[in-house]
């Protein structure tokens, strides 16, 4: 008799824990061969609410950590991901229908993305900040500061890399996040949550939801506690609606091209200007 498989229950990642959806719902995810793969949780608006509460309370601590420390932690995520490669390969090839070689390339690029953004953490304020010339006995500095809670709609494909290249810059800037995984390709994002849970990133800084994008985006748009949204995984029409409801609290809403760029970090940061008298 063959051994019965022990399959993983794919759950949400909220506040450092892996709960099921409060609604009790799940949905079916199929592989590229139309065969059943998993029943991940189908997050409700209340899961979103809980995730935002967790993100909000974790944000000050993450933004308050030194930029160098944030960089170290992002690098640590890369290290842990490396060790989990095999599991990612399995999930990506089953979902996207690519060979394990192609899947491996995607994972390597995702790991490199973490390393690339980890390097930016402690250099950003030198590049984007400035000492401004003023006519008076003052120093005048401008430095970038984190925005707050940023929601991310991850791209569908490439499933893992799509999540990482939206997530890493937002974290590098000191924001906390709620990442809404791609509806059709959610499994690598949840496994990414397991990587994050063991990589020194404080609980609540990253929260990952799986479910129906169409159900969640209006609530993300109108949530007054969410300060920014990366709409990579939304359609143009959905983005437009989100911009309408998001105007209420002046949400920063952005869509980027696929390349890694420090502008992705700065888009979710504020510029703070400080006046300081020149001492005698």
């Amino acid at each position: 008799m063959s051994r019965i498989d022990i399959n993983k229950t794919y759950k949400l990642f909220i506040g450092g824990a892996f709960p099921r959806s409060e609604s009790g719902r799940v949905y079916e995810v199929k592989g590229s061969d139309k065969k059943f793969l998993a029943n991940p949780a189908l997050a409700s608006r209340k899961d979103l609410r809980d995730a935002v509460v967790a993100a909000k309370s974790a944000q000050a601590g993450w933004a308050g950590a030194t930029a160098f420390n944030r960089g170290q932690i992002l690098y640590r995520i890369a290290e842990i991901m490396q060790g989990r490669s095999e599991q990612f390969v399995e999930e990506i090839s089953a979902l996207e229908g690519v060979t394990s070689k192609v899947a491996k390339l995607q994972i390597e690029e995702a790991i490199d993305t973490w390393v690339w953004y980890s390097g930016w953490c402690d250099k950003l304020s030198s590049i984007a900040g400035s000492q401004n010339q003023v006519s008076g006995p003052f120093y005048n500095f401008t430095t970038p500061e984190s925005l707050g809670v940023v929601a991310i709609f991850a791209e569908s494909k490439p499933s893992l890399l799509g999540a990482v290249r939206t997530l890493a810059p937002v974290l590098a800037g000191g924001n906390s996040t709620v990442l809404i995984a791609s509806e059709a390709y959610p499994l690598p994002a949840i496994t990414l949550g397991e990587v994050l849970a063991t990589s020194d990133i404080p609980a609540g800084v990253v929260n990952i939801l799986t479910g129906k994008t169409s159900e969640l985006y209006p609530w993300v748009g109108s949530h007054m506690e969410i300060d920014g949204v990366d709409v990579a995984g939304l359609s143009k029409k959905q983005e437009e609606e989100l911009r309408l409801v998001g105007a209420d609290n002046l949400k920063r809403i952005a869509r980027f091209s696929a390349i890694n760029h420090p502008e992705r970090i700065l888009s979710f940061m504020e510029q703070k200007t400080i006046w300081h008298p020149i001492g005698i």
Partner: peptide
Amino acid sequence: TGHYASANY
């Protein structure tokens, strides 16, 4: 209002 509130308010 029908949408989630923020502690900023």
